[in-house]
Amino acid sequence: MATAHSRTAARLMVSPAVILLFLWMIVPLGMTIWFSFLRYNLLTPGNESFAGFDNYYYFLTNAAFWQALTNTLTLVLGVLAITVIGGVLLALLLDQPFWGQGVVRVMVIAPFFVMPTVSALVWKNMFMNPVNGMFAHIAKTLGLQPFDFLAHAPLASIILIVAWSWLPFSTLILLTALQSLDREQQEAAEMDGASPLARFWYLTVPHLTRSITVVVLIQTIFLLSVFAEILVTTNGGPGNASTNIPYLVYAQSLLSFDVGGGSAGGIVAVILANIVAIFLMRMIGKNLET
């Protein structure tokens, strides 16, 4: 059915998407690489000069970078731990028959649709505020000293906020996976006398492994770029206590106007994301064999 004529037409139809994405990929990224080798500060325009690897050297040897890297990894791993474990438990629960499944499902998914600036500010003010927040009110009722979450445990608080936004995603995907589980196989195992634990371990877990991998990889891509939640809650502080790599790059380039240093940081972030991306692409690529 594919004639030479239709092939040409097909190529023409694909080309706008390809050309646009190619430009989007290559032009800004090329500029970032170029800037990363320059001494370039927005406060002293016209004084750009070649800097070699100096920007990388300063960025990577700065104590702030190592703290930001640690914070980025803590944030990613913390949110992953909560959302994957919580997501599996929640999906197993919601997969059981109970009254009002539709309503509960909607309530559980809802946080995913809340824009990052809203979820961060709602948690920051209505819940974590040490004077008027709900946690402070509860602490006072119990006769305890209110805890200033964002001042004393900034990173943990941000992990909680981000985990709340992403828990619905993992739950929804794992629930979808559970529902595609082969019921007949389950029943056969039950007839053969397999205990519920054995059925879970030998049938459900292997079935879920693939979906968990997908959840982990996709969330990692997004979690490596958490930005808005940090901007509106702590501004990366106190000190650098809640600065991650995206926030550090933003602060360096748009708050300190150091284009060269910020660009070097941007390239470091790209390299980090690519390490994860390679694994994700393999997963999805395998699925494409049809």
């Binding site: 239709s6 097909a10 998407a17 990224l29 941007g266 994301a273």
Partner: peptide, 30 residues
Amino acid sequence: VPGKRTKDLLMWMLSTKMMPAVGVLVPMYL
């Protein structure tokens, strides 16, 4: 009308999504 390169093309498109935004923040802003 899938061709020999369709799969590679799809994967490449996906890979553009993997690029973190901060990687191109400076040039986009400028």
